[in-house]
Structure formats: C-alpha cells, structure tokens
C-alpha cells in the first residue's frame, strides 16, 4: 500500500497536504494498491483526506505530536508504515518534511527522492521518479532499488483533485517516544499565504530605487490577493524582510502567476522562480535577461506601468466580481 503522511501544522491540514494525498492516490492506482493517509496529533479536517483519494485515514492521537520534532515524528511515521505494510511512503516537501524524509528513509531502509515532480513509473520491482535539478535547468530520473521507498512531493506541482467523500478517521495505535527537542513558541503571519504555497506572487527588485516606493507593489498584491516577494539585494539592504527573498539562496516558489518588477533576471534569481506557470516581466531595459524567461513582457518605467496596471486590474475586478 501507499502511505501518505499529511502534516497538520497548528492542527489543520493545508493545501500541500491535499496535493500529497492526491499524488499518493494516483501512485497507488498505478501500483494497483490501496492508499492510506496518516495524521499526527491534532488535525481538525483529517476526514477531508478521504475526499482527495485516501481509502483510509489514520490518526495517531497524542498531544506531544502537536509540535514537530523530527526524531519523534520519524519514529511514529515509520512504525505506522511498518504496521500498515506500506511499500511507498509519500510526504510533503515542506520545512518539516525536509527534516523528516531522510530519517524515515533510514528507519525503513528505503531509497529516498525528495521534491519529485511526476508520478512514479513502475516496471517490475523498479520504481523511477523524476525531480528538477540544477535550478530547473535539468530533470533527473532516479531509480529506487529498495523494497520500501520514500518520496516527498514538490509543492504547487500536483493540483489537489477531489474524487470521493470524506473518510471517517481511525485511531492508529503506535508508540510515541519521548522527544529531546522542545518547541517554545510558534509565530506565523496570519492572513498572508506563505510564499511556498502562494498561487499569485508580486515580486520587485532594485529597480524600485528604495523601500519608500513599495506602495504600488503592495497595492498590486492587494488587488490580486497575492503574496509579495523580492530579489536578494533588496532583502540584503533591508528594504524588504528576509523571508521575501526568492531565488537560489532564498525561497523557491512555483506560483500560477509571477510578476517580476524592476528585477533584472539574474540566473540565481531565475533559479527560484522559473517553475512559475506564467511570468510577467516589467523592466525599462529591453535587454534585461528576465524577458527570455517571460510569458508577457512590458518594456517601460515601472513607476508609470504599475499604477496603470493597478487601475486596469481594479476595473477588471469590479466588472468580474
């Protein structure tokens, strides 16, 4: 069977969990086996995993699992996988998933591939999966040779598909060891979709000239309901917070729509954003490298173009809501 571990940070499953279970179900169908989903600790909407394809939904009830400790979670997920006889364990390629996948692979003596971008191809005992490597400049196909396999699913890659009814949640009884890492405080920004999950992103760079000019960018993001991002130098000089920095050394994103405003399109920037579905570039320099990666390009002064764009979008929203 295929076991999908669905994270429920702060007690709630989010989009990436439904992407993972959609993937798990499709992989299970390809392998001709059942798909089960697993949640640890509180998960208000765990039953929804059934709607996205899980045949069974299991929950390990233990308050200590409400905070993430990679060591404890790895033990519980591995025990569950063994108990249920999973041959493929699917996880999310999230900040916690990245601390967990390697541990689970060791415990299950399994081959691991993280951030996979396509369903596995199966021929006999061999399971092959692909992922983007070298900043999206190539795709690598891995062959996993072990009897049990672990994969984590790249975010914003598999659209969650509803194909059934909510499932009833069953309690799974496995040992929960004592952890050695204690969470003291969790702080998240409410009301803003975090960059790795964002479908719409408005990003700006050094072309903005200074932090005082960001009003038009925030207005554009507001109209769209988008998350804001920036190039690295802008975060380095403190015009924008560090967590907004996208690119090879920042957050890698994969939104449906990416606006790049006053950003030259250096290769290290593109590395983190070139998986976006649609890219719009606004730059006054027709030679800016970003235009090569763009779907739509506007050669012009951003201080003229963006306010005009905001007006057009407001008009569109007013007519279409």
């Amino acid at each position: 069977m295929v076991l999908v571990y669905a994270e429920s940070p702060q007690g709630k499953l989010k989009k990436a969990a439904f992407e993972a279970v959609t993937y798990g179900r499709q992989a299970a169908d390809a392998m001709g086996v059942q798909c089960a989903a697993l949640v640890l600790g509180a998960a208000d909407n765990a039953g929804e995993l059934g709607s996205y394809g899980a045949h069974e939904v299991y929950q390990v009830n233990n308050d200590s699992l409400n905070n993430f400790d990679s060591q404890v979670a790895a033990s519980v997920v591995s025990s569950a996988a063994q108990k249920l006889g999973a041959t493929l364990v699917v996880m999310m390629h999230s900040s916690s998933g990245k601390a967990l996948a390697g541990r689970v692979a060791v415990r299950l003596d399994a081959g691991l591939v993280t951030a996979v971008n396509a369903l596995p191809t199966i021929s006999g005992d061999a399971v092959n999966v692909t992922k983007n490597v070298f900043s999206g400049k190539a795709i690598a196909e891995f062959s996993i040779s072990s009897a049990t396999r672990v994969v984590s699913v790249a975010g914003n890659t598999f659209k969650p598909v509803v194909n059934g009814d909510a499932a009833s949640v069953q309690t799974l009884d496995v040992d929960v060891p004592q952890g050695r890492y204690t969470v003291k405080e969790v702080s998240t920004m409410d009301g803003v979709t975090p960059l790795p999950e964002a479908e719409l992103v408005v990003s700006a760079g050094r072309g903005m000239k200074g932090p005082e000019n960001w009003g038009i960018i925030e207005e554009l993001a507001d109209i769209l309901g988008a998350t804001t991002a920036c190039s690295r130098p802008v975060a380095d000089v403190g015009w924008r917070p560090h967590h907004e920095h996208v690119g090879q050394t920042g957050v890698a994103i994969k939104p449906n729509l990416y606006f790049a405003i006053g950003i030259s399109g250096a290769i290290q920037h593109l590395a983190g954003v070139n998986q976006s579905n649609v890219i719009v570039v606004i730059n006054k320099d027709p030679e800016a490298p970003f235009f090569k990666a763009a779907d739509y390009g506007i050669v012009g002064d951003l201080f003229d173009v963006v306010p005009r764009l905001n007006e057009s979008l407001k008009k569109y929203k007013a007519e279409n809501s």
């Binding site: 081959g111 690598a140 062959s143 040779s145 739509y296 506007i298 173009v305």
Partner: peptide, 29 residues
C-alpha cells in the same frame, strides 16, 4: 546506494515572450 540517478533530461523550452505596450495594461489584464 538505494536511489541513484539513471538519466537526465532538459526541460521543454518555454514559448516566446509576448510583448505588451506599456500604455495598454487593459490588454495585459
């Protein structure tokens, strides 16, 4: 080794960029 690369591929080249006049943002939208 339990998982190793067997093959590489290059991603599909994206289509060409469509340029839109800076004074015609209605068209972009």
């Amino acid at each position: 080794d339990k998982a190793t690369v067997v093959k590489y591929a290059y991603p599909d080249a994206g289509g060409d960029v469509v340029y839109i006049e800076p004074d015609n943002m209605d068209e972009l939208v």
